[in-house]
Every structure is written in C-alpha cells, then in structure tokens.
C-alpha cells in the first residue's frame, strides 16, 4: 500500500477537493456502518426499549444482555465445534497449498503447466455442480454428522491459495535453493525449511482468508452437521429466530448476532494489511 502514497492516487488534489472527498466518504461510511451500529444499539436495550415507537436513542446500556444470551444457548459447545472445523481447515489449507505450490513454482515435470491450468479452471466451477455427488459420497462412507466432510477436503489444496503461494515462490531467488542442494538437502527439506518459513506474508493472508471463509460458511455445516451438538456458530445463529430459548426477543437476538459476527470482524481488523494484499493479488494478477 506504500505504492498508493507514492502515486498519490493519480491526480494532484486541491484542499477543497480533499474536503469534498472526505465529506462524501464520511457520509457513505455512516450509511454503510449504520446497520451494524443499529444492531449494537439494539443489543444493549431492554426488551421494552426495542419495541418503543419512536425508538429510544439514549439509554443506559444493558451490557448484561451479552452474558445472558450466552446462558440461553449452549454457546460454548457451538464455539468449540467451530474452532475444531476452522483450525482443521486452516492447517489443511496451509499445508496442502504451500506444498503443491512448491512443485508448481520450482520443479519441472512434463504436463505440469497443463495440470496447473486445469487446477486454475476449477476456480470457475460453482460448488453446486459438485454438491450432490459429494454429499452422497460422504453419506455413504458414514461421515455425515462429523466434521470430516468440512475439514478433509482442505488437505487437498484450493486453486486460489495455491496460486497465491506459487506467485510468492516464483519470486524467491534460485541461489537459495541451489545452496541448500549443495549442502545435500532434498526437495522436501527445501520446501519445509526454506520456502515455508520465507512465505510468512502469504501464510498470514491465506490464514485470514481461510479463517473468515470457514467461520462464515453456512451451507457446508448446514447439510453435514444434522445433530445440534455438532452445530457450528453460523448454523446455530440461523435457528435463533425461531428458537424457543431466544425467540423474537430482539435484544437477545441482536446480542447473539454481534457475538457471532465478532470473531471474523476482529480477525479482519487485526489483519487488514494481509486482507487488502490478498484481494489486490486476486484482482491485479488475473
């Protein structure tokens, strides 16, 4: 992003123009964040206040809504399930994608480029096409209602992340590898002890992307995790509206929503730099 500052955004701007831009951006920002702000506001009201017409804007925040909603549902259980799935997918994705990317970036073999092309083409494949047979297969081998259908595929790579690792590996100088080879290191060692540690920026980007994507995933957990004790946070949250324990109590529902949304928001805010980099790579390299 340092590049952005150097280029100064293409056009030299006058003071007034910057003021106009900041004004417009602030207005837009207010509108975009309003839904979230309204949700937070509602989550701190009492049950009566949520229904007041006209709405109350200033009131003593009722923080106790948050611990209370955690009592209403087995939230710890959902959180633990989610943690298992997310960590499994993150580890699987990092290992498989960096491993395969090393082959695509640094080793030569007949057919490598064709394989890479086919792999990249799978990015365009809508998941709905593979959905039914995949579900049937996981059902046949008895993996329904386990975390395995959600975790195991991550250990077999993912086109976009392999692409990101490969781009990074292509930029690593050949000398590093050759020195290691002279010292007698095999390809596996070179990947594991040279390339993998060097690729920390990509690892960070892939981790935040995978974390947020898996944490937010709804369809997979919905079809594979039928038993409530196995639910992830997103599946649980989808049922709260009609749940006898939370039901239509808006202050509870909004508190639950904020708790559920918090992890991906926090991860994003902490790792913005990697996020922005990753998305820029996606757009510019295509």
């Amino acid at each position: 992003m340092a590049k952005a500052d150097e280029r100064g955004g293409g056009m030299p701007l006058s003071r007034t123009e910057i003021l106009v831009r900041v004004g417009l951006l602030s207005l837009g920002c207010f509108l975009v964040l309003m839904p979230v702000a309204w949700t937070i506001l509602t989550s701190l009201k009492t049950a009566q206040q949520t229904l007041a017409v006209p709405p109350v804007w200033i009131f003593p925040p009722q923080w106790s809504n948050y611990p209370e909603v955690l009592q209403l549902v087995p939230f710890q259980n959902y959180a633990l399930n989610t943690a298992i799935v997310v960590s499994g997918v993150v580890i699987g994705t990092l290992l498989s994608c960096s491993f395969s990317a090393y082959g695509f970036a640094r080793l030569r073999a007949p057919g490598r480029n064709v394989i890479f092309g086919v792999l990249m083409a799978t990015m365009m494949l809508p998941s709905t096409v593979t959905l039914v047979p995949t579900y049937i297969a996981f059902n046949k081998i008895g993996w329904l209602n386990t975390f395995l259908p959600l975790i195991i595929p991550a250990f077999f790579g993912s086109a976009f992340f392999i692409f990101m690792f490969r781009q990074f590996y292509l930029s690593i100088p050949k000398e590093l590898e050759e020195a290691a080879r002279i010292d007698g290191a095999g390809y596996f060692r070179i990947w594991w002890s040279i390339f993998l540690p060097l690729s920390m920026p990509v690892i960070a980007t892939v981790t935040v992307f995978t974390f947020v994507g898996t944490y937010n995933d709804f369809f997979g957990p919905l079809i594979y995790l039928t038993d409530e004790s196995k639910w992830t946070i997103s599946v649980a949250l989808s049922t709260f509206g009609g749940s006898p324990r939370i039901g239509p109590q808006l202050h509870m529902l909004t508190a639950a929503t904020m708790i559920a949304a918090a992890p991906s928001i926090i991860v994003f805010l902490l790792a913005q730099r990697y996020y922005v980099n990753g998305i820029s790579v996606a757009g510019v390299n295509k």
Partner: peptide
C-alpha cells in the same frame, strides 16, 4: 467479512 447468516439477522 460478516457471514451471510449474521448479515441476514442484521438486515
């Protein structure tokens, strides 16, 4: 970055 389920709840 907010998941679809939470987005739907908010809206």
């Amino acid at each position: 970055v907010i998941g679809g389920v939470a987005v739907a709840r908010v809206w």
